[in-house]
Each structure stands twice: as C-alpha cells, then as structure tokens.
Amino acid sequence: MDKSRHDFLEEETVEKVAWSFKALSDPTRIRILYLLTQEECSVGHIAEVLNLSQSAVSHQLSFLKNHRLVKARRDGQSTYYSYDDNHVIEILKQVINHSLHE
C-alpha cells in the first residue's frame, strides 16, 4: 500500500480534536454550552436554570474556559459567560440533531 497517496493529521491536531470531543463528552458541559447558545448567563443563573450547584457550574465553566469554549465578561461585580467557539457549537448542534433523528 502506498502511504504517499494519503493525507495524515499532525499529532498536535489529533490531540486538539480529541480535547474538543473530551470537552463535549460530559453531560453537564453539554447542558451548559447549549444554554449559552440561547443567552449569556451568570453562574447563578446557569445553576438555577439547570438545577446545579454554583460550585459545579463554576468547575465546569473553568474547564470550558481553559479549553477556550466559553468566555467571560465582567459587568461590575457580576461575571457573564457566553460561548467562545462557533465551530464547536455547530458540532454540538449537529450531534444534537443527529441524536434526535430517528
């Protein structure tokens, strides 16, 4: 077999793709990201809407922020979160649509 006729991904690219899927592999992170597609939210609002503790929300937002999937905006003493990567949101929406397709 002639390997020269195939395209291969760089190892760094493979790792980044795996990390993106890892970020989407947690049900709580999926719920948070999906909520953020609808509105910018504070930790307290996310916790209330999703019936989670503020600690759990903060932990997941930290993970998502470290992976550049959410961003934070300060307004006085409040911090509001929104999604930061439209590509990942489009993948999330496609997978949601796929899971709803019977």
Rank of each mutant, 00 (worst) to 15 (best):
A72D: 10
P27D: 15
I30D: 05
K16A: 14
S42K: 04
W19M: 15
H101G: 00
K22A: 13
E15F: 07
L100K: 11
S25E: 06
R31L: 05
E11I: 11
I30C: 07
L50E: 05
L100M: 08
R29P: 09
I89D: 03
Y83K: 00
Q54N: 14
Y34P: 00
V43S: 06
V49T: 11
L24A: 00
V70S: 00
I89A: 02
S78C: 02
L64R: 03
S99C: 03
S20K: 09
D85R: 14
A56C: 12
I32K: 14
N51Q: 10
D75K: 02
S55Q: 14
L33G: 00
L36V: 01
Y80I: 00
R73N: 00
L100I: 04
H59E: 12
E39S: 09
A18C: 10
A47S: 12
H101D: 05
A23H: 06
V70A: 01
P27K: 14
A23P: 04
I96L: 07
T37M: 06
L24D: 02
S62R: 11
Y83H: 04
T37S: 09
E90T: 08
K3C: 12
V43L: 08
S25F: 07
A47C: 09
K71F: 03
L69C: 01
H45M: 10
L9W: 10
L69T: 01
S42V: 03
I91N: 00
K22Q: 13
A47L: 04
I46H: 07
L100W: 07
Q54L: 10
Y80E: 00
L35R: 08
L36D: 01
L35S: 09
D7F: 12
V57M: 02
E102A: 01
S58M: 13
A23T: 14
S99Y: 05
S82L: 03
E102N: 02
I96E: 02
G76Y: 06
Q60A: 04
L33E: 00
G76N: 05
S42W: 00
T37F: 06
E10D: 12
L35I: 02
R29T: 10
E90Q: 13
S78H: 05
E12F: 11
I30H: 02
K65Y: 03
E40F: 02
L52N: 01
F63C: 08
N66P: 09
A18N: 13
